[in-house]
Design a protein around this nucleic acid. Structure first.
Lengths: 216, 216
DNA sequence: TAGTGTGAATGGATTCACAGCC
DNA sequence: GGCTGTGAATCCATTCACACTA
């Protein structure tokens, strides 16, 4: 399954398609057309067709896409047709919120270990995750190995982010979801997605001010 | 200040530039070149120069950009050279984490009102926000008006997202940061940024599986 | 010399338009 | 008739290369 380089934006939209398909399935839709899928997401029908066609021929001319079938295909492409064990580094407010976030489970992601260096938190059981205990950061490496962890969410304060990221990479983590507001330097074989919550608000502020005081 | 349409990716990077400039300033850097700024963020020097040049001529040939000066310019462009009052709808785990998130304050965003429909939460003071009380969703409209709120963060469960978004828009909110995993339909004059935490993990899963079991 | 600002060239992604299929 | 898959055309973003400047 060695396809040529696939457009990054198309891969991102794959997640949206999957989410929308789940909604359609919950409403007992058996089949959906590219224009319906696009309309629900604010995309053109051509965009939807081209995106899906990058990965294979999933539709039936004259009919559309079979919802359940397409969901399986997309899950397989994304690699979420199996369960991923996820590590959490940094059990502050955001980290706790992520541990309690139920959508991760539904999508196949399980937080199976949590780390922090605050002595007050160490050893504390996490209610949301049936009694998982918070461990010191020094124990990252053996845990990654033992639980076959490949993904980690990084929720530590900014100054700790790079060193903790280095430790995660050294322990063998293959993908990092970074919530700390710093840009990390990682070896090229480690995948990185950065989520900067404050910068998202900045983008909103820009859009709202650029639009100017609306003429109502 | 009516500039032609500016590249969306460039505006997104503006937030990164600003964040990096803050780091440089904290390290007492007076001046920075496009290549230094780019290197710190994994971007080319040409990219940095072109992005900044979209918005004006901020640099000095032979010298670079004056850090403090450029920060002011970028903040002004983003509209964050003033304070924004932000409303929070949905005080679950994620909502609580956002209320406690200190970086919002630093960037000029203040959560000044919090809403939820859980009777157990109503009237409860929020420790992180000096005693702010959680109000019922029905009171959104008068509060938006009274506190001149233009931005809102949406942290309610998926099924509630669209109706609550409608209420926010009706109340006069101009920009929405949506954390619920559904795609919202909003009037075109309302800005929208969607953050789907689960889909970010999916993107990581894709990158890690696409890379294949690493040959180590 | 070191480094910006910018037209020109390149490279990607989106849209168009239509042949082919159910 | 309705809808997919896909080359061709268009549009947009990034990179290149260099004139110009402190």
């Amino acid at each position: 399954m060695k396809l040529g380089h696939l457009p990054v934006p198309a891969v991102r939209r794959l997640s949206l398609y999957l989410r929308q398909l789940e909604t359609f399935l919950a409403a007992d839709r058996r089949t959906v057309s590219s224009s319906q899928l696009g309309a629900a997401l604010g995309l053109s029908a051509a965009q939807v067709r081209k995106d899906l066609a990058y990965f294979g021929q999933f539709g039936q001319p004259g009919v559309g896409y079979r919802v359940a079938d397409l969901m399986g295909r997309v899950r397989h492409i994304l690699g979420t047709d199996r369960t991923w064990n996820v590590l959490l580094a940094g059990v502050g407010n955001l980290g706790q919120a992520l541990m309690a976030y139920r959508n991760f489970r539904k999508k196949g992601f399980r937080i199976v270990a949590a780390f922090d260096n605050d002595p007050a938190k160490l050893g504390q059981p996490v209610p949301a995750l049936d009694g998982l205990r918070i461990q010191p950061l020094a124990q990252i490496a053996p845990t990654v190995d033992r639980l076959d962890i490949r993904l980690a969410a990084l929720c530590v304060p900014a100054p700790a982010a790079q060193p903790v990221a280095d430790a995660l990479v050294a322990a063998g983590v293959k993908g990092l979801l970074n919530f700390a507001p710093v840009s990390l330097t990682l070896p090229p074989h480690v995948a990185l997605i950065a989520v900067d919550l404050a910068s998202h608000l900045e983008q909103l502020a820009y859009q709202v001010s650029a639009a100017g005081p609306v003429p109502h």
